[in-house]
Every structure is written in structure tokens, then in C-alpha cells.
């Protein structure tokens, strides 16, 4: 393969001037982190609530949570983003729809991307939380109720503190996925890390340099997440449960 390597490409000034391609990568990295972090907030809070709902003895409530999960888990992420960005504004009242469409484009792209990614991941977090709660011995819940705790207290003081500690490993995977999935934001025009990489490729024709550096950047993000979650795992380890050596 006759490829012309040139690692100095990142230090070249971009055509519009005033910055180098490194600045593009860093700004892309910033958006990737912002989308992923904001989406995780939604996913964790909403997912935990839905996960609890799914295990409640109330049919209606658990039904609502189950429906949510089936809808958001079964529609491809790309399609969901497309629906939020292009279809939803058309369904709203005309003025509201137009207001959304005339918003500053970067703001509307960012909002759509993290809300969509957050809602999608919430369905997955919900299932992890439910699995965590259901993995606990049934005796724990019964015992808590038998000593006179209300259902709310049973969840708050007995079930959830255990469940959240049990599901740290699978939650690590979800947290990693949210960083990688954030690349879908490029389809609505947000210039996150992958989009900037493609853009550098288009401008400089140095495809491999751009993608190698970006791969390393994603690797670094995920590595940091893994290390942080390992620490959490160690701190919250339940003696005698999974994850203890």
C-alpha cells in the first residue's frame, strides 16, 4: 500500500485559520465527553427508577416500566435519534416546532443527542437494576417486611443498597457503551470526536493518522472509566458476593 504518512498533520493550521487540527480533535473530545456525561445522568436516574418500578408488586407500574424498556431497547439507536431530531418537531404545535428548528443548531443537536442517548441507555440500566434486585435472595425482602418496614423502606434500606453494589460490573459496561454510542450524534451534525476525525480526513486526506489518534483517545477514555469503576467496585464490594476474591 503506497500511503504517505505524515504525523505533523495535526499541527497544521486549519483552512479557516486561527487553530490547528489538534484543536478540532480536542473540541470533538469535549463534545463526546459532554454528550456521554449528560446522557449518563439521565440514564442512571431514570433507569434506576424504572428498574425499581419493574420489580414492584403493582401490575400497572411494572407494566409501564416494561413497556418503556421494550420500546427504547428494541428500536435501533440511530432510528431513535432520527425520530427525535426530524420527526418530533413536526408533531409538535407549529410554533413550538419552528422554535426548536430555529434554535442555535449546536444547542439543538447537543440537546437531542444526549436526551436520546440517555433515554435509550435508561432502558438498559433499568434491566440491570431489575436484575440486581431480583438476584437478591427473596428472604431479604420478606424479612424486611416481616420486621415491619414499609415497602419504601425495604427498597431504600435493604434491597437497593445491595442491588446497586451487585450490579457495578454490568453498569461499567453500560457506562463504557454510552461513550462509544455518543458517536451517533454526528448523524445530526454535532461535531464530536468521530465527526471531527472524519472532517480532518476530508480536509487533509491523512485518513490513518486521524483515525489512529482517535482510536487511542477513545481507548484512553474507556481505560479511565474502567479504572474509576474498578475503584468503585472495590469500595462497594459486598463480602461473600460476586467480585470478592
Amino acid at each position: 500500500m503506497n500511503y504517505n504518512w505524515d504525523w505533523s498533520v495535526f499541527f497544521r493550521e486549519v483552512p479557516s485559520g486561527g487553530e490547528t487540527y489538534i484543536d478540532w480533535l480536542l473540541s470533538g473530545l469535549g463534545w463526546t465527553l459532554a454528550v456521554a456525561a449528560a446522557a449518563w445522568l439521565i440514564a442512571f436516574v431514570l433507569g434506576s427508577m424504572l428498574g425499581v418500578l419493574r420489580t414492584l408488586p403493582n401490575r400497572v407500574l411494572s407494566g409501564i416500566a416494561a413497556t418503556y424498556v421494550e420500546i427504547f431497547r428494541n428500536i435501533p439507536l440511530l432510528v431513535q435519534l432520527f425520530v427525535w431530531f426530524y420527526v418530533v418537531p413536526e408533531l409538535l404545535p407549529r410554533e413550538l416546532g419552528n422554535a426548536i428548528k430555529q434554535m442555535d443548531p449546536t444547542t439543538s443537536q447537543f440537546l437531542t443527542a444526549f436526551v436520546c442517548l440517555g433515554l435509550f441507555t435508561a432502558a438498559r440500566v433499568c434491566e440491570q437494576v431489575r436484575a440486581g434486585i431480583e438476584s437478591l435472595a427473596r428472604g431479604q425482602k420478606n424479612a424486611a417486611l416481616a420486621v415491619g418496614l414499609t415497602l419504601r423502606q425495604t427498597y431504600r434500606y435493604v434491597l437497593l443498597p445491595m442491588a446497586f453494589r451487585v450490579i457495578v460490573p454490568p453498569m461499567t459496561s453500560e457506562f463504557l457503551n454510552i461513550f462509544k454510542n455518543s458517536a451517533v450524534a454526528l448523524t445530526v451534525g454535532l461535531l464530536e470526536l468521530t465527526a471531527q476525525t472524519r472532517q480532518i480526513t476530508e480536509y487533509t486526506a491523512q485518513t490513518f493518522e486521524a483515525f489512529i489518534v482517535t482510536t487511542v483517545l477513545y481507548l484512553m477514555i474507556t481505560m479511565i472509566v474502567i479504572l474509576a469503576m474498578r475503584w468503585v467496585e472495590k469500595r462497594t464490594r459486598v463480602p461473600g458476593y460476586i467480585g470478592t476474591n
Binding site: 426530524y86 443537536q109 451534525g189 465527526a195
Partner: peptide
């Protein structure tokens, strides 16, 4: 102006 960068021509036209 607010400049939007779409990922391809089809998406740009959709916007």
C-alpha cells in the same frame, strides 16, 4: 449565520 455541518448531502437537504 449559524452554520450546520451535515454528515452527507442527503442529510443536509433534509435539514
Amino acid at each position: 449565520m449559524n452554520v450546520i455541518s451535515a454528515k452527507d448531502h442527503g442529510d443536509a437537504f433534509l435539514m
